[in-house]
Amino acid sequence: MSLLRTIAYAVTLPLLLILAWWLLTINSTNFFVPRPGPLASTFVDTWFSERFTTDVVPSLTRFAIGVTLAIVLGIASGLVIGTFSWVRRFCEPLLEFFRAVPPPVLVPVFLVVLGASDTMKVAVIVSGAVWPVLLNTVEGVRSVDSVLSDTCRSYRVHGAARFRHLVLRSASPQIMAGVRQALSIGLILMVISEMFASSSGLGFTIIQFQRSFAVDAMWSGILVLGLIGVLLSFLFHLVERRVLSWYHSQREVQRGR
C-alpha cells in the first residue's frame, strides 16, 4: 500500500507534465518546440546508433578519467593541507582564488597549452572538479573531533592507520559532498570542452545539431545530457548510502532523541 503510494507520488507529476506538453504541442507548428512523439523517435534514431560508440562513450570515458583523477588528487592534497596547519595558512588565499576562477575560462588556456586533444579535455575536467573535493577534504580533516583525535593518540593509533581509520572516515561526509559537486562540475566541463574544440563527443554533436537547425535532434541531445546527469546522481546516491550509512543513521538517531 505504502509502496503503491510512493510510486504514485513519484510518477503523477511527471506524467501530468508530459501530458500537458503533449496537449499543448498537438497542433503546434512552433519550430523550436518539439512534440513528445517525434522527439522520442528522434531520440532513439539518433542515439541508439553508432553515435553511441563514437560520441557518447568517448565523452563519458574522458569524464570518468577526469573526475577520478580530480577525486584522488583532491583527497590526497586535501589531506596534506588539512593536516598541517602551516601548509593550510600558506595556501588558503591561493585556494580561495583558484576555487573562484570559473572553470570554463580555463578551456582556452588548456587549448593553447595542450591543443584540442583528449588530454586537454581531461585536464579541463580535472582542473575544475578538483577544487570542491580538495576544499571539502581540508574542511573535513580540520573538523576531526578533538576527543577522537586524543583517543587515537592515547591508543597509539598513528601514521597510516590514523589516516585510514580516523581522518578519512570522519572527513568522509564532507568529502562526499565535494565529490557530488565535482561530478556536476565535471559534467559541465565535459560538455564545454567539447563545444569549444572537438570533432566528436556529446557537446560537439549537440552544437552541430543546433547549427544545422536539427531541432529535434538537438533536443534529444539535451535529453541525453539530462539523463546522464540523473544517472550520475542516482549512482552517487547508491555509493553515498553505502559509504555514509553510519553518518545518516547517526544523524537520524540524534534527531529522534
Binding site: V147, L148, W246
Partner: peptide, 12 residues
Amino acid sequence: FQEYGRSLFAWM
C-alpha cells in the same frame, strides 16, 4: 574520556 559520544568511532 568523559565525552563517550565523541571518543567512539561512529563508523565502526
